[in-house]
Design a protein around this nucleic acid. Sequence first.
DNA 1: GTCTATACTTCGATAGAC
DNA 2: GTCTATCGAAGTATAGAC
Lengths: 213, 213
Amino acid sequence: MARPARVSADRILTAAATEFAERGFDGARVDRIARRARVNKAMLYYHFGSKERLYRALLHGMFTNAAERLRTIAAEPIAAAEKIDRAIVGLAQVIREHPILPAIMMREVADGGRHLDAETLQALGGVPRAFGTIVEEGVARGEFRPIDPVFAYFSVLPPLLFFLAAAPIRRQVADLHVMDLKALGADAFIRELQQAVRRTLAPPSSARRRPTS
Amino acid sequence: MARPARVSADRILTAAATEFAERGFDGARVDRIARRARVNKAMLYYHFGSKERLYRALLHGMFTNAAERLRTIAAEPIAAAEKIDRAIVGLAQVIREHPILPAIMMREVADGGRHLDAETLQALGGVPRAFGTIVEEGVARGEFRPIDPVFAYFSVLPPLLFFLAAAPIRRQVADLHVMDLKALGADAFIRELQQAVRRTLAPPSSARRRPTS
DNA sequence: GTCTATACTTCGATAGAC
DNA sequence: GTCTATCGAAGTATAGAC
């Protein structure tokens, strides 16, 4: 009663993730995905129907995963600032599990969501939504200064995505001796980001209220 | 003694900017670029030789432009924090002049610089380099806390690029009523970013020294 | 410098046997 | 579910006349 079908489909998704991340939707080659998955190209169409539907299935999964993790963090009974710290780490973890997510998100943003359907866009929207919930809660409790949740989101996620996605091009630029770009590692970057965001969100008076009730 | 050649080449560059920004290198169609430029496709090859060389010429120009503007700001006799403010506005201006720059940079980062040659990478490196100069100066003068210039760069440029490039997809997500993403405009975003970066860079003691000498 | 016509290649997708 | 073979569309690039 083995189910080789699922195995194939999963291998295809994994291979597709790499290919789409490295090349983008238009640059990705169905043949390469099939070869990487050690699967016949016809199988790919048998399972997913088209290049575009494969792409959407992949992104929908990743977006849902990321949003779900943020919602879990948002629901924990801890201070809002602590939630933000964990949200940053959580997003970094999602990226570690899907190292191709930054490149894919950046491309999709640049594409204006051309290849996405309503369902996948909805899943994508869950990410800023969950993040915004945390920020709004912190503001309501007086733990954060009044700040636009959308701005907060766009001051956290882009640096994370950009820094992690830019590793290859950073290496290329660094090799030309234009600048020393190698020193800063991913973990150090995450810690710096947490610190910077805390400063950005901190209320005017440093008197931090404890969220007790 | 008119020089229609230059005119064609410029029109091609303008059209290419739009096409590459909207579709990426692989998604861009040489036919569409030619049509948008109201130029015969053969003319495009006459002037630029290939799709890739056209792409590089375009990016090299934009990167040089952005780096040059930052270097000018870095050389002004003003406080470092003021330079950062102006750098943010300056980058926003470059983007306003080349509205396609965010999408192109994000794609190129995701591509790992695959389509760039050494010369263009060098021009790209000038941007973080000039920005880093300002940060290092501020740190040396005690106007900023000790901070990694690379981190500072990656906490400023990505939000700017991302927010501006994400306008189309944000509209799509907003239309699904997932979240109210419409309220925050570009100008407000830039002001918030300036404020956030000031907080990130501010030295531990709020005693701000005036850079008089 | 400009245009038409087309060569050459690549790629997404499918037909049809097993 | 899996494979081979191939179709047809689309795309980059060029040849060659003007």
